[in-house]
Amino acid sequence: MRKNYFHPKNLDGVYSVYQIEGLNQDRLIKNLKNGGLTLYNVKKIANHKMSLEISVKQDKNFFAIVEKMCYTNLELKPKIDKKRKKLLKKGVIATKSECGYNIKLTRVHGKAYPLYYLFTHVGVLIGAIIFCLGAYHVDDYIFSFEFTGSGNVVENRVVEYLNSVGVEKGKRFSEFDLNVLADGILAENPLLSYAGCLKRGNKMVIELVLAKNGTDILDESIKSLSSDVDGVVKELKVYRGTPLVGVGDKVSAGDLLVDGVISHKDVQIETNVLAKVVVLAEFNYTFISQFDDRETHAELLAIESLNLPVEYSKITKQPDKDGYLYTVTLYYNRVFVAG
C-alpha cells in the first residue's frame, strides 16, 4: 500500500506523552527499544509509574508492542481510537484487572503540533479558512466615512460628489480607485487644496484641506437670511450674524433665520451674514383617484413634482365624492446659505 505522506501521523516534530502505570517497566522499555522505537524523556514519576514521549509517527508501533505485551487499559484523552475500543470490548486487549497496567495519553506537543492539531481537527481548519475568507470578503465593504482635515466644512459637497459617483455605504472598496476618487473630489471643489482617500478597515477616511485662496466669491451684501418654506430647523451653522432660531424650531415662510445685526455691550453693529441653515420642509400634494390602492402612484407623482431629494413621506387616504383623495406629504431638506 502506498504511504500517505500527507497524513498527520507522518509529521515530524510531534510527540505523544504517555503515562504508564504498572510493574516491570524495565521490560517495557526493553521491548519498546527492541521494537525500533525512539524513546524520549523516560522519567519515573512515582513507584510503578513513569512517563515517556514517542514521536506520533511511531504511535502505531508503540500500541502494537504494548498490545502484544498485554498492556491494557488505554485512556487516550484527545481521541479514542475506535478500533482499539472495539478490541477492548471484544476482550482482545486485556483489562486492567487482568494485567494491571494503565497507559494514558496525557498530551501531544512539539514544534509541528499546531499543524498536527489543524490536520486532526478538520472542523477547526475549515472554520479558520472560512473565517479568513469571510474577514477578507467583509473587509472590502465600506461601512462608514470619516472626514478629517480643515476641509471637512465642505463635507456636504463632498458627500454629494461621492453619491453622484456611486460611493455609498455598503459598496466595495475594490469597485473604486481611491486616487481617482480623491482627484475627482479635488476637481469638484475649488475650495479644497488637497483631497485624499484612504481605506482604514471598513472606514473610508477622506482627508480634506481647504485652499488658502478659494475661487468662490464671498457675497458680503447679504444682511439677513430668511426662510422661504414652512418646516423645522434641522441644522444651523452661523459664522457671522445673530441666529434667531434654534435647531428643532418650527419656522414659516418669510421668517428671519439669521440676522446681520450683532449686539455687543449695548452697541449694535450691522454686518453681513455668513451662515448655513437646513430646514426640513414639507411639500403637500393631493391626488384624486377612483381606485383605493393608488398610494404608490400618488407618492411617485408627488416626488416627481417636487424634483428634490426626499427625506421621507407620509400618505393619507380619504373617501371623496369622486373616489378617493390621497394627500402626500413629502419632507425634504431646504438648505439656506449666506456668505
Partner: peptide
C-alpha cells in the same frame, strides 16, 4: 536521572 533519548 532520566533517559533523555533511547534508541538503537
Amino acid at each position: 536521572l532520566y533517559l533523555k533519548k533511547y534508541c538503537a
